Simulated scan of single mutants.
Amino acid sequence: HRGGPAATLLVAAVADRARARGGRRVLLDVVIGNDRARRFYERCGFVPTGRTQVVPGRVSDLEVQMALAL
């Protein structure tokens, strides 16, 4: 269900749950180079925060943090 309607509904459900609990944003990390996932999250309203880090256990891969404002 990558990037499809079910994935969009799942992201919306997570955002709704976070909002209901008083959250102000949802954060996630996407591996740099996983352009399909990044585009999907951007369509859902996520934006890069500018924070990057090494993927745990995969020192040759970096991930970028993305945030969705609630």
Results as ranks from 00 to 15, higher is better:
H1S: 07
G3I: 08
A6D: 09
A6R: 11
T8G: 11
L10T: 13
L10Y: 01
V11G: 03
V11R: 00
V11F: 04
V11A: 02
A12E: 14
V14L: 04
V14R: 01
D16K: 14
D16L: 13
R17I: 07
R17N: 08
R17S: 09
A18F: 05
R19G: 03
R19H: 12
R19P: 01
R19Q: 08
R19N: 06
A20K: 04
G22W: 02
R24F: 02
R25K: 10
L27W: 09
L27C: 05
L27K: 03
D29S: 12
D29G: 04
D29N: 14
V30I: 14
V31Q: 01
V31C: 02
V31E: 02
V31D: 03
I32W: 04
I32V: 13
I32D: 14
G33M: 07
G33I: 02
G33P: 01
N34P: 00
N34T: 04
D35F: 05
R36L: 05
R36Y: 07
R36M: 05
A37R: 09
R39P: 02
R39K: 13
F40S: 10
Y41T: 07
E42F: 07
F46I: 14
P48F: 13
P48T: 15
T49S: 15
T49H: 09
R51N: 04
T52D: 12
V54D: 09
V54C: 09
V55T: 03
V55P: 02
V55H: 04
P56K: 06
P56Q: 09
P56S: 07
P56R: 11
G57P: 00
G57M: 03
R58E: 13
V59T: 12
V59F: 13
S60G: 11
D61Q: 11
L62E: 13
L62M: 15
E63P: 00
V64W: 10
V64P: 05
Q65M: 14
Q65I: 07
A67M: 14
L68Y: 14
A69M: 15
A69G: 15
